[in-house]
Design a protein around this nucleic acid. Structure first.
Lengths: 152, 152
DNA sequence: AGCATATATTTCGATATCGAAACATTGGAC
DNA sequence: GTCCAATGTTTCGATATCGAAATATATGCT
């Protein structure tokens, strides 16, 4: 049992569960992110932004915020770097000029469509340790917890 | 289904599962970390270092590395900040002078023993959406995955 | 002893990340 | 039309995070 904390049994169970959740997530990330970086020069957040724009079309920083679960100021930074590297462009919304729209450049589209299958394959590879049933159960419980805690 | 990716059914299941895992982990963190910061002025990594040293006694940066699952250079930075704030001290190991030993100051001990119960309570609170059985199953599957992917 | 290799830590440069404050634009109240 | 509150984005200062290179010490080989 990883937990050294003395508390109620309810607390010990929750902490123990959460520690396993955190370690398992970290393990998958460690399995997967270095390749994204080395093979495609993309950080996790850069990948997330490109993937969102690929699948949803041009998005504002505000929408990207919600999609990638990061703060607005962080999205600004990540998009800055993607723009500098020529993977996305920013354009003001025509009718509401407070809003910026982030779009893929041709190069950006090429990069993300190249990186995506390899990235998915690595995730699938990492999860092969679990049976289909285990993956389904894991997904169901995570979904329940995630939805219950989702902001608003 | 969150996944827009077209791939084999095995890939779709794995990706779908992983996305739920990631979102659920992020949700719990979002529920818990702001309090750690606001109530005790601790970041997640600072908390992790203090907690490890509290429970395991003085540790080298190398051991802290393994415990908190971060790079060596990151541990250096985190310990730098903790030292600056008077929560830990660094001392050279007596026989092997390559090694530094990180210890809690009195103040550090006070801070971590104050923060720990509140932090655990918040985690337990977040996990109450899951039944005991669900927590056990979640923990078991996460452990299996974490162990399978653990380095070495 | 001298030297090469291994181990432990730090430094460096880059990106990520946050919250608060600043800035820009819109839209409603009057 | 003017002002003000709301909305969207960026700026700013701080910490986290990584990998590669530099530094310091130890250890084994000769």
């Amino acid at each position: 049992m990883p937990t050294k904390y003395k508390g109620t049994s309810r607390e010990v169970l929750a902490l123990d569960t959460f520690i396993k959740l955190a370690r398992c997530f970290a393990s998958v990330q460690a399995q997967v992110l270095p390749h994204l970086q080395r093979d495609f020069g993309l950080t996790e957040s850069q990948f997330a932004v490109l993937e969102a724009v690929l699948h949803l079309g041009p998005l504002s920083p505000g929408h990207l915020c919600q999609k990638i679960l990061r703060s607005g100021s962080n999205v600004t930074t990540v998009v800055d770097n993607l723009e500098r590297d020529g993977l996305v462009t920013r354009e003001r919304h025509e009718t509401d000029r407070r809003i910026q729209m982030v779009s893929l450049t041709e190069h950006g589209r090429t990069v993300i469509t190249g990186a995506l299958p390899a990235h998915v394959a690595r995730i699938a590879e990492a999860l092969t340790v679990l049976s289909n049933d285990e993956q389904l159960v894991l997904g169901r419980i995570c979904r329940k917890l995630g939805i219950a805690l989702a902001p608003a």
